[in-house]
């Protein structure tokens, strides 16, 4: 094959531990057909030698499904936050620059801690309550058209790319970010999930909530799953308007 001597240059931002200072390390690795960023990283793990020929520690990263469904392998590749499993080497400009997403605390090298996203999902009650002391039975049916629409929102894999893209998610703010907000819309429109709508709206207009969105709309451009995040946010804004009016002018009961 003509490609036998071809190499790929990787520039990787590394960090030895959460509190350590980051540094850059370059790697030249042999090219193979149809490589993705993860297989390139696996090559470094197999033979941890940097571009200067020095023995080094293997680069650490997070991964799971390898098919853009779990969201674990997100990193900043050539300046763009995306999943490293579906980032194909053939489609990337060289040298390929890999950095961890800066919105999250770095654990080591390219692996970040996305706990804040899962905490946000808990904060906004992003689930359908089905557990009780007795069998709650089947829920109401859902229109097929609505199910198809809801399926799009359910594609969120908590990968963190939208938070990375958001100028208002940073160390100065408590903003929970677009992902959790869109999940509120998903669960509020579920026939059984709707039971907790008022509680979710309280959460979403509370600390770090909806109000901190600045409408830069980077999230919807960056989302690898094409989730209509800004439509969800605007729809929640409308819901929050109604919710707050009901709460102020309305009755002692609302949902």
């Amino acid at each position: 094959m003509a490609d036998e001597n071809k190499t790929i240059k990787l520039i990787i931002q590394r960090q030895d531990e959460p509190e350590a200072a980051p540094y850059e390390e370059e790697f030249d690795i042999p090219y193979r057909n149809n490589m993705n960023v993860i297989s390139a990283l696996m090559e470094i793990r197999r033979n941890p030698v940097n571009a200067k020929g020095e023995q080094t520690t293997p680069v650490f990263w997070d991964m799971g499904c390898l098919e853009e469904v779990c969201g674990a392998c997100s990193m900043v590749i050539n300046g763009e936050a995306q999943q490293s499993c579906t980032a194909l080497i053939d489609q990337l400009e060289q040298p390929v620059k890999l950095e961890p997403m800066k919105t999250f605390p770095v654990m080591r090298d390219l692996a970040v801690d996305r706990s804040r996203m899962f905490d946000s999902l808990k904060q906004v009650k992003a689930w359908v309550p089905i557990d009780g002391t007795y069998d709650l039975g089947e829920g109401p049916r859902m229109a097929e058209s609505k199910r198809q629409w809801a399926y799009e929102l359910s594609k969120c894999m908590t990968c963190g790319v939208c938070l990375e893209a958001c100028p208002n998610v940073n160390s100065n703010s408590e903003f929970i970010g677009p992902a959790a907000l869109s999940q509120v819309r998903l669960f509020n429109s579920h026939p059984t999930g709707e039971f907790h709508k008022a509680e979710r709206m309280d959460a979403v207009t509370g600390e770090g909530g909806l109000q901190q969105c600045g409408n830069s709309q980077n999230c919807v451009e960056a989302c690898p799953k094409g989730i209509p995040l800004t439509t969800s946010i605007a729809a929640l804004n409308r819901e929050a308007t109604v919710h707050s009016f009901k709460e102020f002018f309305g009755s002692d009961y609302h949902n």
Binding site: A165, N168, E221
Partner: peptide, 13 residues
């Protein structure tokens, strides 16, 4: 309280 990121995300909005 916002952090600019125009360099990476140069979209209209």
């Amino acid at each position: 309280t916002s952090e600019m990121n125009l360099k990476r995300y140069g979209y209209f909005r």
